[in-house]
């Protein structure tokens, strides 16, 4: 049940042009900022948006020549779109009924699926009586009821509040693990993507900018958007064996590289000083404080200078250093705390 797709869709704002392969049982997340084309890609896979060019092949047979209702897909929409006039059970039984299964048989299938997502007690409830988390599970059961070979999820957790989200995310992960077909999910939340997906595909402006397993993407971001998502300072420069030259600043690293390279380090790795520090840290530069904001238990300091960087320091350190915006400070990062990789 391998999915091979090359999707080209022209939109007034951009052209989506991506290729992706999803193995059976694999969950691939399309991650990207709003308006990047993630949902367009998902709709193109479902057949709800027409392809300008390209192809979709599932198990060796073309999908793009089929109409939406003929495709062996299951789709969970962002706000679930449960049919408001049908009970939870009949929502789930809708797909099997469309496939020509008898009413009794369809309802048995639906009841079994509702049981699997733990909603047997709510089978007769109309969608407006369900909570967000319950509606999400009904939507998943409805999509699985058609025995799809390709499961598509559009922002499956975006409509939930923070607490429900945590719970539903882990349940969804379990259900996706049980599903043996290919799964493509769209999200703008890096946490959802990391928890739910086996592989990430990052899309910006309609094109793939990076892909890989979550740990790889988190460690080696390749665009500012990804770096921001995973919380790293990221620079592009030229490596000369011992360090990476970014603008005027040479950042020493422990990785030996030559040629165009990225260098990344965590904001927590940046230390700030009132006067130029002596000793071991090899990367020292003078920076100007642009702003200070709370960041979890720490304080995030925005630095301008030869490079733009974030530094995370403790509130105590902030008080000791008596930092205010506009002030000049010295920033330093140990070479061992940086990570360089080819661009």
């Amino acid at each position: 049940m391998t999915l091979h797709a090359h999707l080209v869709v022209t939109r007034p704002a951009f052209t989506l042009d991506i290729s992706l392969t999803v193995a059976p049982g694999e969950v691939v997340a399309l991650l990207g900022p709003n308006g990047a084309g993630k949902t367009t890609a998902l709709r193109a896979l479902a057949g709800l948006t027409a392809l300008a060019r390209g192809e979709i092949v599932l198990d060796g047979s073309p999908l793009h020549t089929l109409s939406v209702e003929e495709r062996p897909i299951g789709m969970v929409f962002q706000d679930y779109l449960l049919f408001p006039h049908l009970s939870a059970l009949d929502n789930v039984a809708f797909g099997p009924r469309c496939q020509g299964v008898s009413k009794a048989e369809a309802r048995r299938t639906a009841a079994a699926l509702l049981d699997r997502v733990g909603l047997t007690d709510h089978a007769t409830a109309k969608p407006r009586r369900l909570s967000g988390g319950q509606a999400q599970r009904v939507a998943l059961a409805r999509a699985l009821a058609v025995r799809p070979r390709l499961l598509l999820l559009d922002e499956p957790l975006a409509a939930l509040d923070a607490h429900t989200r945590l719970e539903v995310r882990s349940q969804l992960r379990r259900h996706l693990a049980d599903f043996d077909g290919a799964t493509v999910l769209v999200t703008h939340d890096p946490l959802d993507a990391m928890v739910l997906a086996d592989r990430l595909i990052v899309i910006e402006h309609g094109a793939i900018v990076q892909q890989g397993v979550p740990a790889e993407v988190a460690r080696r971001p390749r665009t500012d958007y990804v770096a921001r998502l995973v919380g790293l300072n990221l620079y592009r420069g030229v490596a000369d064996g011992s360090g990476v030259k970014v603008g005027q600043l040479l950042i020493s690293t422990s990785d030996r590289l030559e040629g165009p390279a990225f260098v990344a380090f965590a904001p927590a790795a940046v230390a700030l000083y009132r006067s130029r520090p002596d000793g071991s840290p090899r990367n020292v530069w003078q920076a100007r404080i642009e702003g200070v904001e709370r960041h979890g238990d720490n304080v995030r300091v925005h630095l301008d200078g030869p490079i733009v960087a974030f530094a995370d320091i403790t509130p105590a350190a902030l008080a000791d250093l008596d930092l205010t915006p506009g002030q000049q400070v010295w920033a330093s990062v140990k070479a061992t705390e940086t990570h360089a990789y080819p661009a």
Binding site: L48, V68, M75, L81, F94, G95, C98, A145, V146
Partner: peptide
Amino acid sequence: ADQRYEEAAATLGASRWT
């Protein structure tokens, strides 16, 4: 009426008449 309900029904295999 929200036409996305009709899209959802189509992804579940419903013909336009259904």
